[in-house]
Structure formats: C-alpha cells, structure tokens
C-alpha cells in the first residue's frame, strides 16, 4: 500500500514536471522542471529496487547532464521562445494526437498486461551484482561505450571551438 502511495505521489510529480516542461516558455524553467522529473524518476527506481540505478540517475542525469544544459542556456543567453505559425499548427495537431496516442497505449497496457505486480525490493540490484554483470558479461559493450564517450568528447571540443582559434592553431602548428 505504501509503495502504491509513493508511486502515485512521485509519478504525479513526474508527469507534472513533464507537462510543465512543455508549458514553460523560458528554457531555464523547462530545464529545472526536467530536473524535477529526473529526481522523482530516481525515487521510482528506488521503489523498483534498483538503488544503484537511482544513484546514477541523480548523479549523471540530474547532476552532470542538466548542469551542461543550464550552462549552455546561460552561455547563449537564451530568452523566451517566440510563437510562430508552425508552432501553432504543431500545437493544434500535436497535442490532441499525443493525448489520443497515450490514452490508447495506457488503455491497452492496463487491460491486456494482466495483474502481475512488481514488488519493491523483489530484485535487489546491489552494486556487486551490477559490477559482476557490467565487467564480465557486458565487458565488450562497456569498452565500446568508452570509445564512444572519447569520440563524443573530441567531437564536442571540435564543434564548440571558435573557428578563429582552430585557424590560429593551424598557423602556429
């Protein structure tokens, strides 16, 4: 019962944050509501017994990635977004379409997925087990992701560098 109450409270915070992300016009408000969504999702992971995933969610998503977003918003001095004809058409057709789609998905899931229940703590996800899987069974994908991150770092540096500084380096080098 307690699990259901906690699930409902934090699920409501999650959906409210997601809707607030859509409603807000200023990107910094959207970013902060996305932080709220991610933090309440971490609680949902805790309810599912995935403690380590919850910790990583808070540290990596709500911490690192959102700091990057806020940093870019501040760096570019992003203001309120303007309303254009295209966005009005998108609102006119997008919101009813997505409402209908999500209601359909919710109806199908609730009526056809049986009554199996996920109990909190049924699958303890201790760091030891996760590490065993990550560094043994999934070692190759893990190493490949390290290459991916390296390429992403280099790409970010090259893309965000000022064109003048690259030319200057070429002249000096």
């Amino acid at each position: 019962m307690l699990h259901l109450v906690l699930f409902l409270i934090f699920g409501a915070i999650c959906v409210a944050g997601a809707v607030n992300l859509l409603v807000q016009r200023h990107p910094i408000n959207s970013a902060l509501s996305l932080v709220a969504v991610m933090a309440s999702l971490a609680v949902e992971y805790l309810l599912l017994g995935a403690e380590f995933v919850a910790a990583v969610q808070v540290i990596v998503y709500a911490g690192a990635i959102m700091v990057l977003f806020v940093f870019v918003i501040m760096l570019l001095n992003a203001g309120e977004e303007a309303r254009t004809g295209g966005s009005r058409v998108a609102i006119l057709f997008g919101i009813p379409g997505m409402l209908a789609g999500s209601l359909l998905v919710a109806w199908v899931l609730i009526t056809h997925s049986g009554t199996q229940e996920v109990s909190a703590g049924a699958l303890p996800g201790p760091p030891r087990e996760i590490a065993n899987l990550l560094f043994h069974d999934f070692l190759l994908p893990f190493e490949v992701t390290s290459v991916l991150v390296l390429i992403a770092i280099m790409g970010a540096v090259v893309l965000a560098a000022r064109p003048e500084s690259i030319e200057q380096q070429k002249r000096e080098g």
Binding site: H3, L4, F7, G11, C14, V15, A18, V19, L21, L22, V37, E44, L47, L48, M98, L99, G101, S102, V105, A106, L109, I110, S113, T115, Q116, E117, V118, S119, A120
Partner: peptide, 17 residues
C-alpha cells in the same frame, strides 16, 4: 505492491510528453 502496467503507463506518458 504496484502493478507492472502502472510503471509502463507512466513511462508511456513521459515518452508522449
């Protein structure tokens, strides 16, 4: 205890948003 479908519905709603 929370049914699995509730989590899936929440996940679907987030995706739709």
């Amino acid at each position: 205890m929370v049914p699995l479908s509730y989590y899936l519905v929440l996940s679907g709603v987030l995706f739709a948003c």
